[in-house]
Structures are given as structure tokens and as C-alpha cells.
């Protein structure tokens, strides 16, 4: 029996909205530690890893680990029916082939429930090694989203170069070339305006802007995004889900000739 009650139900909707265009069907794995989702996009170029800890839920009961295969588009349709302040409760039987979502308004004067059919999805599970990254850039999520959007109108690949002064995004295409530099700023009054760079050594990697832009769909989740880079390894683009967990995207760098 699975029963999980999330007071900030809107977080679930933001997570699903962030990934539904990259991944169509995915297994949501539930265990005593919470909810996890790991899936590659259809072209196997990017990987999504989400974890929502059990202690994020006001009530969490998971008698035994289960894997719920779902169409993320359908899940998004169901979650769209929840009010932005609704409490969301998920229920599923151990041998069930459906999952029920219950939405309660804060004043508990409106309760709705939606039952979603589960699917059998065989997905290969990848082991993501812990990496000691050369450069970790924490910057305003809105700033990152804007840079991806702006540079996508100029080129289709971006070189991200992290140095101790700042992080530079460079692209070029038929239109011309563009550089955006975000300087380290650890003294901004508002924390959400700060850009912090933890650098072990400078690193510059080339990525497909299409995927980086797609990751920015997670912007509503958090004020900051963290880009972690090391030569010749996938970049990790991470959004914290408040203090409940994380949504991580991985993208392999393009190989220079």
C-alpha cells in the first residue's frame, strides 16, 4: 500500500511540467526513501534524475518498494486539475494497476480524485557516479533560462566557460556570434540574485542549446540553478525542489574535432 500526502502539491506539477517534453513515459519508483524518477530523453542524449524525499510528505506510507509506469503527458493533465494551493495525496495498492490522486483545497471545502492507469515500462536504470566537479556555478535560474533562450536565437551549440571571475556562454551561427558573461556576485543584497562559482580549475565545454533550453523548463521550481562541469563529462544542471529533493539533468558535452 502506498499513501503519500504532499501539502505543497504544486511542486509535483512543476516537476512533471519540467520533464514531460523531454520524456514521454517513465517509471516513478517509490520506496521508504521517497519518490525517484530516472529517465533518458527519447534520443538518449540527456538524462533526468528526480528525487523527492519521504520527509517532504506530511504523511508517507510505502509498505514495499513499487515502480509506477506512467505517461507523463497524462500525469500532467491530471495534475493540471489541482488547485495551485491544493494538498495532493497519492494512493496505490501494491498489486494495483492504477494510482489515485486526491486533491484537497486548503479549506478542505473541495475534494477531487483522479485515477490514472499505470503502464508497464521497461527502462534501463543507469548508475550515475558521484563526481568531484572542476567547476560548480550557482546562478539565478531566470538568468540561465534567459541566456538559453537568447543564445538559441543565434546558434545551436554553446560553449560554457567557467573561470574564477565568471561564467561565459558563447554561441555562433549564420546570424553572427554572441557572448554572455555572468560575473561572480556573492554580495548581491537578495540571495536569489547571487552568482557563486566554486572553481577547482577553469573548464570550457560545448553543449547542444536545444537540451539546455529544455532543462530551463524547471525554472519555476527554484530561484537558483547549479551547473556542475568537468572536462569530457556530462554537465549536471540541478534545480533544488525546495528542501524536499532535487531535479537533475545530465547532458554529454559535444566532442571537439
Amino acid at each position: 500500500m502506498l499513501e503519500a500526502r504532499l501539502v505543497q502539491g504544486s511542486m509535483l506539477r512543476k516537476v512533471v511540467d519540467a520533464v514531460k517534453d523531454l520524456v514521454s513515459d517513465a517509471n516513478i519508483d517509490v520506496s521508504s526513501s521517497g519518490f525517484s524518477l530516472q529517465a533518458m530523453d527519447t534520443s538518449h542524449v540527456s538524462l533526468i534524475a528526480m528525487h523527492l524525499r519521504a520527509d517532504a510528505f506530511e504523511h508517507f506510507r510505502c509498505d514495499r518498494p513499487m515502480s509506477m509506469g506512467m505517461s507523463l503527458a497524462n500525469l500532467a493533465k491530471v495534475l493540471k486539475c489541482a488547485g495551485s494551493d491544493d494538498i495532493v495525496t497519492l494512493k496505490a495498492n501494491d498489486d494495483g494497476d492504477t494510482v489515485t490522486f486526491m486533491f484537497e483545497s486548503p479549506k478542505e471545502d473541495r475534494v477531487s480524485d483522479f485515477e490514472l492507469k499505470l503502464m508497464d515500462i521497461d527502462s534501463e536504470h543507469l548508475g550515475i557516479p558521484d563526481t568531484d566537479y572542476c567547476a560548480t556555478v550557482t546562478m539565478p535560474a531566470g538568468e540561465y533560462a534567459r541566456i538559453c533562450k537568447d543564445l538559441s536565437s543565434i546558434g545551436d551549440t554553446v560553449v560554457i566557460s567557467a573561470t574564477k571571475d565568471g561564467v561565459k556562454f558563447t554561441t555562433s551561427g549564420d546570424v553572427g556570434t554572441a557572448n554572455v558573461t555572468v560575473r561572480q556576485n556573492t554580495t548581491a543584497d537578495k540571495k536569489e540574485d547571487q552568482t557563486i562559482i566554486d572553481l577547482k580549475e577553469p573548464v570550457a565545454l560545448t553543449f547542444a542549446l536545444r537540451y539546455l533550453t529544455s532543462f530551463a523548463k524547471a525554472t519555476p521550481l527554484a530561484t537558483h540553478v547549479t551547473l556542475s562541469m568537468t572536462r569530457e563529462l556530462p554537465v549536471m544542471v540541478e534545480y533544488a525542489i525546495q528542501d524536499m529533493g532535487h531535479l537533475r539533468f545530465y547532458l554529454a558535452p559535444k566532442i571537439e574535432d
Partner: peptide, 14 residues
């Protein structure tokens, strides 16, 4: 365009 390696080449499949 530069070649784009797939991810599984970086992560071990469990």
C-alpha cells in the same frame, strides 16, 4: 555540427 555522444557511454547501466 559537432558529434553528440549518447549518455549511456558515460554512465554504467545497472
Amino acid at each position: 555540427a559537432l558529434p553528440q555522444p549518447p549518455l549511456p557511454s558515460y554512465f554504467t547501466s545497472e
